[in-house]
């Protein structure tokens, strides 16, 4: 009993000492906190270094999303590239966890340090592809998925991806 009493008195003394410490709180709108470049805020879709959209509609971001707030539909363009026919993020559900960015195999989906997305109407928090797509490459400047992957697209035939040899002519006996 005595021990617990002293322990509690000690606690009270410690708390009392905090009367003279500074508050940790940052007075947000007046005083802007430091946001690191990799801070996880509003999500964007980026372009590859050649200026074409990076997203290949593989659906991995959607499935990684813990609140299921990403929906998209794949399509195939005439040049053979996969692309999202629509790409929708419901930011009123988004928890900015960044799992979509980690899942993305093409570095298309990226989180930006912008987190100030307040709206009076929840419907305005639903972002479609045209709201998400930016012109730049975001944080990753050099990566172009189609230069690495084996899928042939217009302007890049079989055997022209990274680490690939020319296509085999199976009718040639000398190879």
């Amino acid at each position: 009993m005595f021990k617990s009493l002293t322990s509690q008195l000690q606690t009270m003394w410690t708390i009392l000492q905090h009367t003279f410490t500074k508050a940790e709180t940052v007075q947000y709108p007046e005083e802007m906190p430091y946001l690191a470049p990799r801070y996880r805020g509003r999500i964007v879709l980026t372009n590859d270094p050649d200026g074409d959209e990076r997203c290949v509609a593989c659906n991995l971001c959607a499935v990684a999303c813990p609140v299921d707030c990403i929906a998209l539909q794949q399509g195939v363009r005439d040049d053979g590239r996969w692309y999202p026919q629509f790409f929708r993020i419901n930011f009123s559900r988004c928890i900015m966890c960044g799992m979509c960015e980690e899942a993305c195999p093409t570095n298309a989906i990226q989180l930006t340090p912008d987190f100030e997305m307040c709206e009076y109407d929840r419907q305005s928090m639903v972002y479609e592809k045209e709201h998400l797509q930016i012109k730049g490459t975001g944080k990753y400047h050099d990566y172009n998925f189609y230069r690495v992957a084996g899928l042939a697209i217009a302007g890049k035939d079989k055997g022209e991806a990274q680490n690939e040899s020319k296509p085999i002519d199976i009718k040639d006996l000398l190879q």
Binding site: C65, C69, I70, A71, L72, F86, R88, N90, V126
Partner: peptide, 9 residues
């Protein structure tokens, strides 16, 4: 996936 976004439009 996409339960909260499928019909958000």
């Amino acid at each position: 996936s996409g339960r909260t976004a499928m019909r958000a439009d």
